[in-house]
Simulated scan of single mutants.
Amino acid sequence: MVEEVIARYLARRDPVEQPVDVVVLMGSAVLESVEVAAEAHRTHGVPVLISGGIGHSTQYLDDAVRRRGLDLATGRPEAHVFRDLLLGLGVGADQIVVEDQSTNCGENAHFTRRLIDTPKTLLLIQDPTMQRRTHACFERAFADLPGTTLLSHAPLIPWIGPDHVSAGPGRPEIWSRERFRSLLLGEIHRLSPDVYGPNGRDFIDHVAIPAEVLAAYNRLVTEDPSVIRR
């Protein structure tokens, strides 16, 4: 399945073979990210920095909260919603740092950089469709802090069902198939050197996209050329 080729590439997961200093959790519509961040907090015994204001994913986060019947106020910065969820999972308030002004993954990286002034090992957790681009944004933002180590851990590898996408068979829906396809293709489009890369808006450094991923992207775009503009 061509969507799976792209999804697995975007959901970057690095080996975590060293101590971690901070878990950096990005706001998104993927509630499973909070569970993974809480587990990383327990495993490594380190604080969680949540980065996320009100952006393009906020309405989808609010939809996910309502769809799952969670008793949480909506219409708030994504970091505030995720903070409440972390507290509910037993993470202490003194172990949570909130950055609630960022509206996109570039600002997630730059605003997080403002809060960290010494080299650390950061474990980045983001919506799996955005994990690779987020990593590239953090590489750019932390380039001026030598000794920083960035590790990405997408909270899940998307399971693609007939009409929706989730964390696995029988798990709650995260995206419809149509929206998921749009997200995948939008991400590959943004990773291009001529779009968000050095030859375009210069938000990220060059990202070498594997040939098989580009082939899958081109196949889907041929099937529906409008999808990257949705």
Rank of each mutant, 00 (worst) to 15 (best):
Q131D: 08
W159T: 02
E32K: 09
I204H: 07
M26P: 01
D205I: 04
V23A: 00
E107M: 08
S182H: 15
F82H: 00
P77T: 09
M130A: 04
A7F: 00
G197R: 05
S166V: 08
I125C: 03
L150S: 06
I54P: 06
L87A: 14
R68S: 04
P119M: 06
L49A: 06
L122M: 11
F203E: 11
V98P: 12
D100F: 11
S28Q: 07
H153N: 10
G90M: 04
H135I: 10
A64Q: 05
G170M: 02
V165P: 01
R12S: 13
L191V: 09
G168L: 00
N218P: 04
P158Q: 03
G106M: 13
V24S: 08
G92F: 08
A93K: 00
G69L: 01
A29G: 15
D84A: 14
L156R: 00
R113G: 05
G147E: 04
I50D: 00
E32Q: 08
E223C: 10
E187Q: 15
Q131L: 08
R229D: 13
G168N: 05
R113P: 02
A64W: 00
V2K: 13
V48I: 11
E78Q: 01
P225I: 00
P210A: 08
G27A: 06
A167M: 04
V213G: 09
G55M: 12
P15L: 04
E212N: 14
V46I: 02
L25E: 09
Y60V: 13
E139V: 13
E187G: 12
L124S: 09
T43L: 15
V16A: 07
V65W: 00
E4Y: 09
Y217V: 05
R76D: 02
T118I: 06
D144W: 10
E17A: 15
G52V: 02
G53Q: 03
Q126K: 00
L72N: 14
N104V: 04
F142S: 01
A154S: 05
E187I: 10
M26R: 01
G88M: 04
